[in-house]
Design a protein around this nucleic acid. Sequence first.
DNA 1: GCTAGATTTTTCCAACTGGTCAAAAATCTT
DNA 2: AAGATTTTTGACCAGTTGGAAAAATCTAGC
Lengths: 224, 224
Amino acid sequence: MPAAGRPKKPKATARPLTRIQREKQDTILEAALEVFSAHGFRGATIDQIAEVAGMSKPNLLYYFPRKEEIYRRLISELLVTWLAPLREMDEEGDPFTEIRSYIRRKLEMARDFPRESRLFANEMLRGAPHIEDMIAIDLKALVDEKAKVLLAWMEQGKIARTDPYHLIFSIWATTQHYADFDVQVRAVLGKDRGGEGRFEDAARYLEHLFMHGLTPRPHSGSTT
Amino acid sequence: MPAAGRPKKPKATARPLTRIQREKQDTILEAALEVFSAHGFRGATIDQIAEVAGMSKPNLLYYFPRKEEIYRRLISELLVTWLAPLREMDEEGDPFTEIRSYIRRKLEMARDFPRESRLFANEMLRGAPHIEDMIAIDLKALVDEKAKVLLAWMEQGKIARTDPYHLIFSIWATTQHYADFDVQVRAVLGKDRGGEGRFEDAARYLEHLFMHGLTPRPHSGSTT
DNA sequence: GCTAGATTTTTCCAACTGGTCAAAAATCTT
DNA sequence: AAGATTTTTGACCAGTTGGAAAAATCTAGC
């Protein structure tokens, strides 16, 4: 009995990934996004993902040997794109314009990538068990940096003096709400207002909120 | 073959619930809240809940014959208390005061009942499969009613004219964020600012946001 | 057209999960 | 204290799930 442990993972030379491999992996990740975002990590089954991806479970496991591997890959890739809009906020630009377009971009992401938003929200709800370090390091660093930018704008009297961190939180919260709580939003708005137009309404509203708050503009006449 | 189906549920006279029954049910619901809010419906197991509740699985099942029954009970009770603050918003009161205390109350709920908030958020994320009708009927009705109140205040020039529905959404989103995304908030704020004080900071910030937005107050001097 | 390596399918399994059931233990009633 | 009722437990089960093993098929280079 030769003690030759058969090498399960033929990572001998670590080939650079064939075309098929890349394609299949993408298919799987797309399917996984669909399923994970709808049911959460534990709620999703490999079988489901495999079915959506149009392949058998063992075949899927050939490309990603663990369920968690799929999830982790998905979510860490997501985090990068998810933070892109914030990264783009430019100290050199006009503060109001920058903030406004940041909000708009985030809202567009909620509209165009609701699955990503929900996946992320779910991970947070669960206490971010898979990306603890990423949020404690990368995310924190980015927010710290942008908070400084906001702070500088405040110092210059260009925007109101408030807490830059909570300002960022409130932008995240208000925009992602439209993806994460979509059912609720649609149910409350009803058939007539719950259509696609809701995002434009939201954009208008949020712009107003962040620009002026609820203080009435001096310009409406008397009442009654 | 006598067709006497033996009555599994001896609901003969529908006894009014003994003390023990009430107590145990409460214990179970409390444990279920803990577990469901942490892992979601599918992620939670009856065994886990039973363990937290300090009883055996079959014993727990004696009080709630189905897992879903526990969940449903929990979440429908929750919805009522969850909406209480909004219900309290009084048309007769001063608009700014009313809105401000609504925000404060919601934020307090995020601080004091984060598990409830997360349970609710999770249900929404999943598309609200257990409370579809409740949100489409009761919730909608309540929001419609309060939207009218807000609208009236706007008509009277007491608060700025904006979309009352999205205003409510933004209050929900910003306040619940501190419960649902707690990990993220704490990670970003870091050790020094992530302590209990974060809720006070949030309260101050949100008050500013909703009262004034980001428009700088005229009163800070010139700069540089 | 042959063969090494890559891919896919078939079969299988052990752990877990929601839930059942009968009997035992505890509690209540009289 | 006996009998009736409620509560608790231990053993069990069927379905699901993540994953392993191996056999079968395919593909590219020779």
